[in-house]
Computed example of a mutant assay.
Amino acid sequence: MTVVRRRPAPLPTLLLVLGALYCVVPTLWILVAATKSRTELFSTSTYLPSFGGGLLSNLADLSAYDGGIFWHWMLNSFGYAAIGGVAASLVSAAAGYALAMYRFRGRTLLFNVILAGVLLPQIVLAIPQYLVLSKVGLAGGYLAVLLPQLFNPYGIYLCRIYAAASVPQTLLEAGRLDGAGEFRLFATVGLRLMTPGLVTVFLLQFIAIWNNFLLPFVMTSDDGKFPLTVGLYSLLRHGAAEASLYSLVITGTLLAVLPVIVLFLALQRYWRLDLVSGAVRG
């Protein structure tokens, strides 16, 4: 039997290559620029790395800047993203599980409202959220950055779809016959079966909080509570008057990208498990 291999279409292939370059080139520039010293940054070729120890010097200067506040920003970002990601994933799991497993009046309307929330840009909500939190005295603190992140319409949508596909009603009915309550069923059956989907929700929410700039910028003015995004922006503003800070901003940006890459690679096996289990169910 002769296998006929189709040649790849040139236009889609070209578009994929251009899209890959669009994503890779800025990251490559940051990686190369971080290896350059302050003088080399503006005097050498753009994509020509330096091997004169500029990266180590930039790391040392970044760690020493303002008493090591960069690492405090890094810790804040980890706190916001990790706590917010876990809490938002649990809220999304509970809401999605309830929408998928139970029938109640107004369920379709509620789900449609949540879908409308997916289409609403989060930038529109920043000012109203600040006004609400300032009324209750929470504006300016850590909770002001965390609380608006707990409700994730897209995460609820994903959990609802995944719960409907992965949690069989027969298994829940068997648990009810054994005397298990609804909360226990959700905690011991629902969450376990939804784990691969929740990993995806957590990763998406972690990255969204890690990269969020406007919400923490609006909510807090204390540089000790800044995440990396706002902290690097403030450092860049100071760099407008002191060009030597540009190297620190670039090095800090490189360090800010690394945790997301590590997290993506670490959780990739759960996505593979999810794909395999989905294929088996199909």
Rank of each mutant, 00 (worst) to 15 (best):
residue 75 L to A: 15
residue 80 Y to T: 06
residue 65 Y to C: 00
residue 8 P to W: 15
residue 123 I to W: 10
residue 132 V to F: 15
residue 231 G to A: 08
residue 180 A to F: 12
residue 13 T to A: 14
residue 79 G to T: 11
residue 17 V to K: 03
residue 200 T to G: 13
residue 103 R to P: 02
residue 2 T to W: 14
residue 183 F to E: 13
residue 74 M to Y: 15
residue 267 L to H: 05
residue 229 T to D: 09
residue 134 S to F: 04
residue 89 S to H: 06
residue 274 D to T: 07
residue 252 G to M: 01
residue 46 T to D: 10
residue 263 L to W: 02
residue 49 P to K: 10
residue 206 F to N: 00
residue 57 S to E: 14
residue 211 N to V: 02
residue 225 K to C: 12
residue 175 G to E: 11
residue 121 P to L: 00
residue 158 L to V: 02
residue 99 L to N: 01
residue 227 P to E: 08
residue 29 W to R: 11
residue 39 T to H: 14
residue 118 V to N: 03
residue 140 G to V: 02
residue 37 S to W: 07
residue 281 R to Y: 06
residue 13 T to M: 10
residue 147 L to T: 03
residue 30 I to G: 02
residue 217 F to K: 11
residue 125 L to A: 15
residue 194 M to N: 04
residue 254 L to P: 01
residue 91 V to C: 10
residue 73 W to F: 11
residue 266 A to C: 11
residue 125 L to M: 15
residue 188 T to V: 12
residue 193 L to S: 08
residue 111 F to D: 06
residue 18 L to R: 01
residue 147 L to W: 03
residue 183 F to D: 13
residue 198 L to W: 03
residue 158 L to N: 00
residue 94 A to T: 12
residue 81 A to E: 04
residue 135 K to A: 15
residue 261 I to N: 03
residue 77 S to G: 06
residue 153 P to F: 02
residue 116 A to K: 05
residue 203 L to H: 06
residue 153 P to Q: 04
residue 175 G to C: 12
residue 43 S to K: 11
residue 227 P to T: 09
residue 30 I to R: 02
residue 244 S to F: 01
residue 130 Y to P: 06
